[in-house]
Amino acid sequence: MAKCDYCGAEVSMPYTCGYCGGSFCPKHRLPENHSCEGLDKLTEESRRSGRIYRGISEDLRDEPRENPPESFRRIGFDFDDEKIGGEGEFGGRGILKNLFFSNATTTLLFIIVIVYFGQLLVQLTFGGYFYENTFISLVALRQSTIFKYPWTLVTSIFIHLDFFHMFVNGLILFFIGSALERRIGRKRFIYIFLVAGILAGIAQLLVSKPNAILLGASGAIFGVLGTLTVISPRMPILLFFFIPMPLWMLTVGYGTLEAILAITSPGDTIAHMAHFSGILVGLLYGYKLRREGIGRARSALEDLFRNLGI
């Protein structure tokens, strides 16, 4: 059985790229998804000649497909002619599966939201005293209880102070998490999310007061940010939704600020040390993946920014 030249997966019917001649699995068959050298050359020639590269050739578009189009798979929908209108992917359970469990990013977001509403339910059912003195002690990270409740290293990642705290973390995770997961895969994404969150929590414990409560996914999210920065440093982002800049510039700026605040304001209510530690963990993991040749594919938007010199 043939193997994909990009990820090494075994495929019964490999696709041959019309630009570089390599053999690829359905997931990496498009030139944009396997860092195609021929595509880079074509893009450069098109730019020099003043032409606009408009995507893959019609020959590649007409190839028979084993799997659904990548564009639809990325947003979580699987097309199957036998399932449409039935109990398959477009049935009630199928819609829920595609919306919340099609990739790790949406699954983590779903868990975070469910946990937050679970917090509200506990508070309304048992009262504020029980919530603050018993429930939080069982799920939030605290220096005085870490050895008694070691599972709080993980549960604290999914607990948030209030709706705004949860919403901001969820919004950031949605954008950068999806971008990273497409590049490194589901398992590696979950790994860096949890490891960065745990190590960031431990780092914050070292500079916090014994009874300080630590909670939130910020450390894990900054780990995702660090990894994505190493793998795709020139990925275009919009700071405050309107200022364009490459990702590395945002990470360096924010990482420097968090490092300064972690040293000068260790007792602040914001976990600056967790943020800075999360970035460091992510940068190290991203460097490891890059040396292994994982996640180097660029998106079409990144190529556009690259060609424009941004």
Score class of each variant (00 low, 15 high):
residue 21 G to V: 01
residue 282 G to P: 00
residue 34 H to D: 13
residue 161 L to R: 14
residue 264 T to E: 00
residue 292 E to H: 12
residue 303 D to E: 07
residue 51 R to S: 15
residue 162 D to H: 11
residue 178 S to E: 04
residue 127 G to V: 07
residue 206 L to E: 05
residue 277 S to E: 07
residue 189 F to W: 09
residue 219 G to P: 03
residue 305 F to P: 07
residue 132 E to A: 06
residue 116 Y to F: 15
residue 239 L to D: 04
residue 280 L to E: 00
residue 130 F to R: 00
residue 46 S to M: 11
residue 236 P to Y: 01
residue 43 T to V: 15
residue 182 R to P: 03
residue 46 S to F: 12
residue 89 E to M: 10
residue 256 T to L: 15
residue 287 Y to N: 06
residue 169 N to F: 05
residue 82 E to Q: 13
residue 169 N to W: 01
residue 294 I to S: 01
residue 82 E to C: 04
residue 79 F to Y: 15
residue 117 F to P: 00
residue 297 A to P: 04
residue 188 R to E: 09
residue 280 L to T: 12
residue 163 F to K: 10
residue 149 Y to N: 15
residue 108 L to Q: 08
residue 226 G to Q: 03
residue 51 R to L: 14
residue 224 V to F: 05
residue 255 G to V: 04
residue 200 A to C: 01
residue 203 A to Q: 08
residue 223 G to M: 07
residue 107 T to K: 05
residue 35 S to M: 11
residue 124 L to N: 12
residue 222 F to H: 13
residue 102 S to D: 09
residue 283 L to M: 12
residue 82 E to L: 13
residue 41 K to L: 12
residue 260 I to T: 13
residue 38 G to E: 02
residue 266 P to E: 01
residue 217 A to K: 03
residue 232 S to N: 11
residue 181 E to N: 08
residue 152 T to A: 06
residue 105 T to D: 08
residue 114 I to A: 15
residue 133 N to M: 11
residue 134 T to I: 14
residue 70 E to V: 09
residue 150 P to Y: 06
residue 229 T to C: 12
residue 227 T to Q: 05
residue 48 R to L: 11
residue 153 L to H: 01
residue 62 D to V: 07
residue 95 I to Q: 01
residue 59 D to K: 15
residue 32 E to K: 14
residue 13 M to K: 14
residue 199 L to Y: 06
residue 290 R to L: 11
residue 19 Y to F: 10
residue 230 V to D: 03
residue 42 L to A: 14
residue 59 D to P: 00
residue 115 V to G: 02
residue 63 E to G: 00
residue 277 S to R: 03
residue 300 A to G: 06
residue 127 G to C: 03
residue 220 A to G: 13
residue 23 S to H: 13
residue 69 P to D: 15
residue 210 P to F: 02
residue 125 T to G: 02
residue 306 R to Y: 08
residue 15 Y to E: 05
